[in-house]
Amino acid sequence: MRVLLSVLFLASVVFAADDLKEELGASATAPLDSARILASKFSLSQYAVENMDYVIQYNLYNVGDRAALKVVLDDRNSFPTNSFEIVKGMLQVRWEKIAPGSNVTHSVIIRPRSFGAFNYTAAVVTYYPSEDAKEVKVGYTTAPGEGYIYRQKDYDRRFATKFGTWVVFLFVAAPTIVIPYMLWYSSKSKYTNQSGKKQK
């Protein structure tokens, strides 16, 4: 699953780079002379569930011809602490430099505190596009869009293993199987013993 998502991300980066060249028109072959970061945000978990770990991954790729400096990824507004618990990682992270043609990956594990519909918005990416740049460039990651956080009871009922249910079922069903078997085995033993005595 992770490999497929990575391939899709790299494909989107290639298409975005091609779009960038088309936007430049006649100067498409000329150097950009600045950094340009494309960023994605997606989930590595199949379902978001109340009180269960949910993994978010961010990929940043510099398609420009200069290093991006003082890069900051900030996604704190997407996951407020009153609705989500941060289990591992940070929602705001900084890189001093992302070289041209290179990419970085960052993951965060969160835990939803409640269930219901939720809008997964884009994270904000800020950076300096060149060493002599005086203004910070602002960009955004892709946004997964609206999703749903399952209630833990509903998720367990639908997706969790039914080991406990099978144990209870076998415990209840055992008497209806064991008792008739014992009666049959007892009568069979008596019949076998009587037949053996008669033959003697």
Rank of each mutant, 00 (worst) to 15 (best):
N62R: 05
E146T: 02
T105R: 07
F15H: 09
T192I: 03
V125P: 03
F42L: 10
F9I: 10
A17W: 11
A28K: 05
A133D: 09
I37G: 12
L60F: 02
Y128H: 06
A122H: 08
S40P: 00
G25Y: 04
A143M: 01
A160V: 08
T29Y: 06
P31L: 10
R2K: 05
F169Y: 12
A28L: 03
Y128Q: 06
A133T: 03
V172F: 12
Y61D: 05
Y191M: 03
Y181N: 07
E146F: 03
S40C: 06
V3R: 11
G64N: 09
K197S: 09
E22Y: 07
K190T: 06
E131I: 04
V136T: 02
S107D: 14
F159Y: 15
E96M: 13
N82Y: 13
V172H: 03
Y47L: 14
Y58R: 01
K21A: 13
P144W: 00
K70P: 01
K88H: 13
F163T: 13
V168Q: 04
Q199M: 13
S83P: 00
V178L: 14
L170S: 07
R2V: 11
P80F: 11
S27A: 15
K188Q: 09
W184I: 12
V93T: 02
V138N: 02
I37E: 05
F159C: 12
Y61T: 11
Q92C: 10
A160L: 10
Y148P: 00
Y181R: 04
Y54S: 06
A123V: 02
V125S: 06
G101W: 12
T176D: 08
K70E: 15
G25S: 13
V168L: 15
V72K: 09
S186D: 15
K134I: 02
V167S: 10
V168I: 13
V71W: 10
G116H: 01
S27C: 10
F163C: 07
P100C: 09
F42P: 00
V71S: 10
S186P: 00
A160D: 12
Y185T: 02
S195Y: 07
L38Q: 08
P129F: 09
R151Q: 01
G25D: 13
L5W: 03
V93P: 00
L5Y: 07
S186M: 09
Y61I: 04
V124L: 14
N119T: 00
V63A: 10
T142V: 04
V108W: 07
V178E: 06
R158G: 05
K190H: 03
T192M: 04
A17P: 02
P175D: 05
R111V: 08
R76G: 04
D156H: 02
Q57P: 00
D19A: 15
E22M: 10
I98R: 07
K88T: 12
Q92H: 04
G196L: 15
R66I: 05
G147E: 01
L60K: 00
S12F: 11
V124A: 13
F9Y: 14
L32V: 13
R111N: 08
V93Q: 08
V71A: 13
D53S: 12
E96Y: 12
G164Q: 07
A28R: 06
L10D: 15
E135D: 09
A35R: 07
L8M: 15
N103M: 11
F171A: 14
G64L: 10
S83Q: 08
F84T: 03
A133E: 08
